[in-house]
Design a protein around this nucleic acid. Sequence first.
DNA 1: CGTGAAAAAGCGGCGTC
DNA 2: GACGCCGCTTTTTCACG
Lengths: 153, 153
Amino acid sequence: MVLDEFDRGILAILQRDNLTSQRTIGEAVNLSAPAVQRRIKKMTEAGIIQANVAIVDPTALGHAITIFVEVEIISETSGQIEAAKREFETMPEVQQCYYVTGEADFVLVILVPSMPAYEALTKKLFFGNNNVKKFRTFVAMDRIKVGLQVPTA
Amino acid sequence: MVLDEFDRGILAILQRDNLTSQRTIGEAVNLSAPAVQRRIKKMTEAGIIQANVAIVDPTALGHAITIFVEVEIISETSGQIEAAKREFETMPEVQQCYYVTGEADFVLVILVPSMPAYEALTKKLFFGNNNVKKFRTFVAMDRIKVGLQVPTA
DNA sequence: CGTGAAAAAGCGGCGTC
DNA sequence: GACGCCGCTTTTTCACG
């Protein structure tokens, strides 16, 4: 699916605030509200808009600690990779998971309420998984920027 | 502000899909729609709900490449740290930026349309900054999970 | 907090270009 | 095929009990 300038304008707004009314969006991009709606529907069906979510402050829910983990696995067969993906994916503490090239195989962004909780998670995810060769932990001290907006330009 | 089980239930749903109607949410948590609405408003004003956004597939916008970078800086004086924070923060390609402990000082999540674009960015951000000791790049091959859901349990 | 009414937004059909 | 216009339906929103 190919996106024109209208679609890009709509996405730019939706990435900032997806509760903006279709009429307001229409005024911003010079389109009628139904036209905006049709484009949003199309982009959603095409998978371009993947989800609509509320961003919640982790500290309010007691999950104050953000941790980055680089995971190196032993056997890089596609079956093992898929198994690892699925395991990371199902853990609620694992916020983001990427399969990467470089000195590691996976990069995880994890959110936990405390360091003991993280230790418990490492026991389950890494020490309890004999396909994990090693992992490196980075504890976030400051969240400088949490961007989700893909540049539309 | 203290959250009860109703609030947690509402947040759990909103983090998955913030377009869910208040009536549906109310049925799920055993509350009337206006009660749900009041709680959402309160949590938004309290900053617990920080934003409502559409998650967009970066590839659809031509920013197909996600890159993780660990940055190690030379001088860890607070002035240098702050300067680095500000520089990373202002770049639109830098989606996420955390100041971390461990073998690196910063972890960045970067989104670029191509590898040449990333090379150009490294020249500006890292090679052009004589306070950067070294950096390690991880190119994402697969986006397994882009979680934003803080566990509510 | 829940009920119920008013306002607004979402949604679909139809004619037009 | 996509647009805008016009109703209908759903949702949001705010009074009041």
